[in-house]
Design a protein around this nucleic acid. Structure first.
Ligand SMILES: [Zn+2]
Ligand SMILES: [Zn+2]
Ligand SMILES: [Zn+2]
Ligand SMILES: [Zn+2]
Lengths: 167, 167
DNA sequence: ATCGCCATGTTATAATATAACATACGTTTA
DNA sequence: TAAACGTATGTTATATTATAACATGGCGAT
């Protein structure tokens, strides 16, 4: 399997890329993680993670429920929300608040405090890691606020949508 | 009216401060803005802005509706959402996505791209201006993503809640 | 006076999310 | 083995947040 070029710039996500690499790496990491942590790798969890991995388009909970119904799984809201909570807790998915939607993590293998670039047109999302993000939160909050987490969502236009708009 | 110490560090908001200053400055700025832009300064708009200015605690739309009902205004959802949209458009309020709630702006008088510090315990919110925030988005997104807006919400514990917890 | 504009009001419903309880199944324990 | 337990899934109902669509009323411009 050919590797994608380095994701130093997360914007690869907005371009054509060998998405099988994204998919397979993530799914393997998920399997490994569950095995090592003794967590149950169930068909439902695998299925939902597959949905999220289809491309870099976030999915709403109710979209996921529709897809689960089509696949013969239960499809009432708690089903989706529970699996999503699990994936988020385990670091394999993130919630994009801007979109009320969920996306597979693309910086697996480490606890991280990601930032997201969200294309307002195609709604694809790229995850930027902390160092790339240019965020210096220590500078932001002085001595008297104890930072625990940061939610950073950058909205704009991705390269593909810029190109289309310019046409 | 005594001035508050400089808001160089937004964390003043989490401490005791002369809140009349915050309130009066904001309300005056709002009146001035509406006059200059020829926008209608209606009782409803004033009332909602007053609610948001009571302290630095964000209010949910339905909380605002309850307060409007108590004040004899209409209290169906569109009433609140429309006024909030107006205040946000005019730069006098922000939505805190983390809380699904709304807060008065505390850096009036300029278009700005704020960041927020949100105390997870008391849920008070301080607004940090862009320069303070330590965010360098140009660094974050390279040549192929056109940034239009950034949503930054930092979650943690404010100085007052840290103190209480330590007790 | 009439028209158009805009704020407010009303009714209904959409979209997102959680609470509470029921079942099923594999693992541990008695 | 049987009971007890933990955890995943399933179900029912409801809570929370937000918007669509249409109606009314005041007010200034023509
Ligand atoms: Zn990919
Ligand atoms: Zn795009
Ligand atoms: Zn502001
Ligand atoms: Zn606090």
């Amino acid at each position: 399997m050919k590797k994608n070029p380095t994701q130093k710039y997360a914007s690869i996500i907005f371009k054509k890329h060998n998405h099988n690499v994204c998919f397979n790496n993530a799914m393997k990491a998920f399997q490994k993680h569950c095995f090592e942590k003794n967590l149950k790798l169930t068909p439902l969890r695998i299925k939902v993670f597959e949905f999220l991995l289809r491309d870099h388009q976030p999915l709403g909970a109710y979209q996921i429920l529709d897809m689960l119904r089509d696949s013969g799984f239960g499809s009432t809201p708690p089903i989706a929300y529970r699996v999503l909570d699990f994936l988020i807790e385990q670091g394999f998915a993130h919630k994009i608040k801007r979109l009320n939607a969920f996306v597979a993590c693309s910086h697996l293998g480490s606890t991280h405090s990601p930032a997201f670039m969200i294309c307002r047109k195609c709604e694809k999302v790229a995850e930027i890691n902390e160092k790339e993000s240019g965020v210096n939160l220590k500078k932001a909050a002085p001595f008297d606020f104890k930072i625990e987490e940061a939610v950073i969502e950058v909205i704009g236009l991705c390269i593909s949508c810029i190109t289309v708009e310019a046409t």
